[in-house]
Amino acid sequence: MATWQEAVWVPDLSALGGRRARQSFTYRAFIPDRLDPAALSFSAATATDIAEAESAIAVADHGQHLVAMETLARLLLRSESVASSRIEGLECSQRRLAEAAFAPEHAGETARQVLANIDAMRRAIELGAGERELTVEGIKGMHELLMREDRATGQFAGEFRSRQNWIGGRSDSPRDAAFIPPPPSTSSR
């Protein structure tokens, strides 16, 4: 059953900000239910929709317009990656993205991060479409591709987190955060 875990934040005493920024405080991190693969199921209507979609894809894959389908798939992948990047606050025009793909060494950090998102999404699709089992190393490889261009957190690319993270609020502590996920110590439970 999903719960909340209380923890004490011990701040960096050399952190910027006033006295409040250097004070300890208690926060609550969300601990979700464990996934039970045996309990995952689709309704009959959803299963029918999935079967119909698979059939349509199979027909399209064997059709005469395979090159057009591959082009469409690349465009959809790119569009999805750009939209996903926007959620993270990374805005990049299609022109800047194309220039970055052509000459990454001259691209801005945001464009390189969006390209990294595209590469990570491509790897995720390859892993999901393959016959191999999804492994921890496969997940770490996707994370490395995704985070390699992030100046703030790139040194953690391809690694499981070892520190608490949060969404919203301050950048130096979970004070005033909108959401605090499980602490790293509970990630493998």
Rank of each mutant, 00 (worst) to 15 (best):
M1S: 09
A2D: 00
A2E: 06
T3S: 10
W9Y: 05
V10G: 04
D12G: 02
L13W: 01
G17H: 00
R20A: 13
R22Y: 01
S24Y: 04
Y27V: 03
A29R: 01
F30Q: 00
I31E: 01
P37I: 08
A38I: 01
S41R: 15
D49T: 13
I50R: 08
A51N: 06
E52T: 13
E52C: 12
E54Q: 12
A56P: 00
A58Q: 15
A60L: 15
D61T: 11
L66Q: 11
E70G: 05
E70F: 07
L76T: 12
V82P: 08
S84R: 06
S85L: 02
I87A: 02
I87Y: 07
I87T: 06
E88G: 06
G89V: 15
S93T: 15
Q94A: 11
Q94N: 14
R96T: 14
L97P: 04
A98K: 12
A100Y: 00
H106N: 09
G108R: 04
T110W: 10
N117H: 11
N117L: 05
I118T: 01
R122A: 15
R132Y: 03
T135G: 07
T135H: 12
T135N: 08
I139K: 02
M142W: 00
H143L: 00
E144K: 01
L145Q: 05
R148W: 12
R148C: 14
R148I: 14
E149S: 11
D150S: 02
G154K: 00
G154E: 10
G158T: 09
E159P: 05
R163T: 15
Q164E: 14
R170Q: 03
S173W: 02
A178E: 15
F179V: 11
P183T: 08
